[in-house]
Design a protein around this nucleic acid. Structure first.
Length: 428
RNA sequence: GUGACCGUAGCUCAGUCGGUAGAGCUCUGGAUUGUGGCUCCAGCGGUCGUGGGUUCGAUCCCCAUCGGUCACCCCA
């Protein structure tokens, strides 16, 4: 019989790792609440046109990376390859964009059929933030400032840099695109194969080619910034002045184009060189045309998404995880003798009632007393509680400090919870 | 989709110029009948990724295949 395995590029988050995910998620959730953003949860599967119309037919994501299938009624469905399109669909469908502004975020799995490598998986998780109904550069700035605060909270701010660009209005972009194609067509023979192909399909993407010869050729090419219309220039200036005022530094990168068709004006990426080839940790921009594209009333919008796995890899690489994440208990209860085994459950229940914020693990599964103490140590608990025949007879519990040098004491059961709470609060 | 490298114990790896394998960590028990971390001893644990070929004999050599990793591409 063939061995049953998980699917390539789709990973398990195991007990030893889940605390790290929760650590990141908790920080993000708290931070977004600080800015007044609300969470939305949308399905993992959408009708395929949500993505083909939203992301763009000729993008790589839609052309060759989507998990698309027919359901039993013959409808074409797709696993979401990104979060924005589905989020916009939900906002339109529920009438949440009618004369109101919205600030929302989501978190969840996305799916793309690609060859896995470091920081790139077939099922991966994004935390995304989207805002609707706001035209000015102040909201673009707020989103970026918010991410900057997040990097600080995670201890990775020294390892990421902000790349910033304006893609202009669609008219400006169309004019620029024509100029770029003109320039590159005259030097077509010097382009690498991929770039030659993109010349007709998606010429802007040639700008961020990694091919050094192509990059050299581009140094003489027309720059997007020179083709910006007044409106876009003003918007971009409004954004940069606010970033300056908040002390967020950035690098203007006129070659920064994003892979999804719906972006215009502001585009940004936070990148790191600490993760190998997949260095973009967060990316986003303005997509004023998308809501209309998906059948809603024209609504301005800005948003971004960050890659959870990449952030976790980066925090790990920079050694920024708190040390106590591996601990599974604050208090570990070891028992000896039949009488103790009889009372340990009700006693532990009482402690959990009296000290609801402590993680209290009662030993299961028998084994010698020494083995129980080893487990107490491995659990990361600050205290071991010891219940043997003597303790049962006196309604007492022996409290042993596993981390400090306090003397072991015996306390009446009724006093144990308070003792632990004060001691452990003091430690934390 | 293309390329490079790699598959030996649960994990990290050694090894056999071809004679069916070993260490560290983990786990269990003991040295220390009710006291963890350090140390020492013992035990548990392997179709050497899978299939085929060469050979008296293959974990080792050859071929294929599957899987993993990294990179291209693309993006979070």
């Amino acid at each position: 019989m063939a061995k049953i395995t998980g699917i390539r590029g789709m990973n398990d988050v195991l007990p030893g790792d889940s605390a790290r995910w929760q650590y990141l998620e908790n920080i993000v959730r708290h931070l977004l609440a600080q800015y007044g953003y609300q969470e939305v949860r949308t399905p993992v599967v959408e009708q395929t046109p949500v993505f083909t119309r939203g992301i763009g037919e000729v993008t790589d994501i839609v052309e060759k990376e989507m998990y698309t299938f027919e359901d039993r009624s013959g409808d074409s469905l797709s696993l979401r390859p990104e979060g924005t399109a589905g989020c916009v669909r939900a906002m339109i469908e529920n009438g949440l964009l009618h004369n109101q502004t919205q600030k929302v975020w989501y978190q969840g799995s996305m799916f793309r059929y690609e060859r896995p490598q470091k920081g790139r998986y077939r099922q991966f998780n994004q935390i995304g933030v989207e805002t609707f109904g706001l035209t000015g550069p102040d909201i673009d700035a707020e989103l970026i400032v918010l991410t900057a605060r997040l990097w600080k909270a995670l201890g990775i701010d020294h390892a990421v840099t902000l790349q910033l660009n304006s893609l202009g209005t669609s008219e400006a972009r169309a004019n620029y695109k024509a100029a770029l194609v003109d320039y590159l067509n005259s030097r077509k023979d010097q382009l690498d194969e991929d770039s030659q192909r993109r010349l007709s399909t998606n010429p802007m993407r040639i700008l961020d080619s990694k091919n050094p010869q192509t990059q050299a050729l581009l140094s003489e090419a027309p720059s997007l910034l020179d083709w910006l219309d007044e409106e876009s220039k003003e918007h971009f200036a409004g954004l940069t002045s606010r970033l300056d005022a908040c002390g967020v530094s950035y690098e203007v990168n006129p070659r920064l184009v994003r892979g999804l068709d719906y972006y215009g004006k502001t585009a940004f990426e936070w990148v790191t060189d600490a993760l190998g080839a997949q260095g973009t940790v967060c990316g986003g921009g303005r997509y004023d045309g998308l809501v209309e594209q998906l059948g809603g009333k024209s609504t301005p919008a800005v948003g971004f998404a960050m890659g959870v796995e990449r952030l976790l890899l980066l925090i790990e690489a920079l050694n920024q995880f708190p040390e106590d994440l591996t601990s599974t208990a604050d208090v570990y209860i070891a028992v000896m003798g039949e009488k103790a085994e009889q009372v340990v459950m009700p006693w532990a229940e009482r402690l959990r009632t009296d000290a609801p914020n402590l993680r209290i693990v009662a030993h299961n599964g028998g084994g010698g007393f020494k083995a129980q103490m080893k487990k107490a140590d491995k659990s990361g608990a600050h205290f071991a509680l010891i219940i043997g025949d003597d303790e049962v007879a006196n309604e007492q519990v022996a409290v042993k400090d596993l981390r400090g040098d306090a003397e072991q004491v015996s306390l009446p059961l009724a006093d144990v919870a308070n003792h632990l709470i004060t001691k452990i609060d003091g430690v934390n």
